[in-house]
Design a protein around this nucleic acid. Structure first.
Lengths: 244, 244
DNA sequence: GAGTGGTCTAGACCACGGT
DNA sequence: CCGTGGTCTAGACCACTCA
């Protein structure tokens, strides 16, 4: 079927091309790290000129879906933000190098999704979810307390692994064990005075300020795959933005 | 003098063109809201092809310096983030519409720049600065306590105006009275337990969590023009980001 | 209707990466 | 060396804005 007809023909060609490529990426036609078609090939297949093809690719690069390498090709980008903590919390060593905090699973259970979770994950109310609580530490000092919810349907394979063997990063685990690739995320920051439970977990005075980060992690097709809420001491928190 | 020679000739043409336009904007050859040269004119003046000119303009649009309007021209963008508070604090009415909080200047003084301020504003140590404290309120309720520092050299005209006549937005005032146009800003967020002084100003319990926003505001030439530190109740704070 | 930016073409040559 | 993306040209026609 002609790709043009699958998209709104009133759209500019470069838009339809972008959408087409975006769909192919979402359908995992190429896995992260793999090269997509060359520009010359796209020119042929879509009967577009090189400039138009490049504009479509440019858009996907700007969106973070692709990455170009002169001489090598254009590659499906692998999101690497399990360490996005670093956007918000300063865990650097004095040397400035990044460390991956230790991840320790405290609890894992299967339950019916609370309504807020069902809505964030776009599940039917009452669907089964995997709920985990996890503590992240650096040099034995607790830095972040996390509550993580996953749709059981997609992540059941995690239940077969001992939680002690989860390792420090979850997204590679999701990919290897469950074939679920995280492509992007939306985060929502708020702040509050810490409650008793988290004060104990994070070794803080009750009432000390904490930052709360709520994250929906999405696949390449933008379907929500994970929802988590993380709390960390406000003292460690720092975020920088540029505004225009 | 040939514009090409003023830039590194090893750079691609579209880069040199971008730099040239960027410099002209910084030098206020066009004021915010005014149209720059048309694409056709740029093609002539720089002996480049339309595609190259468009690429240079595209970059400046992406950077937020320009804005295109089909049929009208390409305009120097006016930064409109005095209300960037809305990025961080939710002040919306139930209706969702934005209100400009009332701004009330509590104090204004001329002093030697504290070293942190001198460094943020890139002033020689001990330079004279204008320091103001300001409270922002909505429906009479205090929302934000601000400390603002300005280089006296550029902003001396402000000292002639009664602080009661400052109005609710400062950046338009800077532009009208001092000819200083704010083009962008860098913000730095942290959180802390509120101290006594700010607890009283913001009508909070001592120790309640507050968000601290430090902002350096820059001109089109990226020279720092203002430094401010704002504190607001964490309860009102919310920030959303997308991560890829 | 005149003038602006928006889309698109069909090439050319260059710079870089891997073999 | 070959194949990749990077830069650049010199047009054409369309869609929109404003007088």
């Amino acid at each position: 079927m002609n790709f043009v007809r699958r998209h709104d023909e009133r759209l500019p060609l470069y838009q339809r091309l972008r959408d087409e490529l975006s769909e192919r990426i979402a359908s995992q036609q190429w896995r992260p790290g793999e090269a997509i078609l060359t520009e010359a090939e796209l020119v042929k297949q879509f009967s577009a000129s090189i400039g138009t093809v490049r504009k479509a690719i440019d858009m996907l690069v700007a969106e973070g879906a692709l990455e170009r390498f002169q001489g090598r090709g254009t590659i499906v980008r692998r999101a690497r933000f399990d360490s996005s903590l670093f956007r918000f919390f300063r865990f650097q060593k004095e040397s400035g190098e990044r460390q991956v905090p230790e991840g320790r699973i405290l609890r894992r259970e299967v339950m019916a999704a609370p309504s807020a979770v069902a809505s964030a994950l776009r599940l039917a109310p009452g669907s089964e979810v995997i709920h985990m609580t996890r503590l992240r530490l650096l040099n034995g000092k607790p830095l972040l307390a996390e509550s993580i919810w996953l749709p059981k349907e997609k992540f059941a394979a995690l239940l077969d692994i001992d939680t002690g063997a989860f390792g420090d990063l979850l997204y590679p685990l999701y990919e290897e064990r469950c074939g679920q690739v995280i492509a992007s995320a939306e985060e929502d920051l708020t702040a509050e005075a810490v409650d008793e439970v988290h004060a104990r977990l994070l070794q803080l005075q009750p009432g000390a300020p904490v930052i709360v980060v709520e994250r929906v992690a999405l696949g390449y097709d933008r379907q929500p795959l994970e929802w988590r809420r993380s709390r960390g001491p406000a003292e460690q928190f720092r975020y920088q933005v540029e505004i225009r």
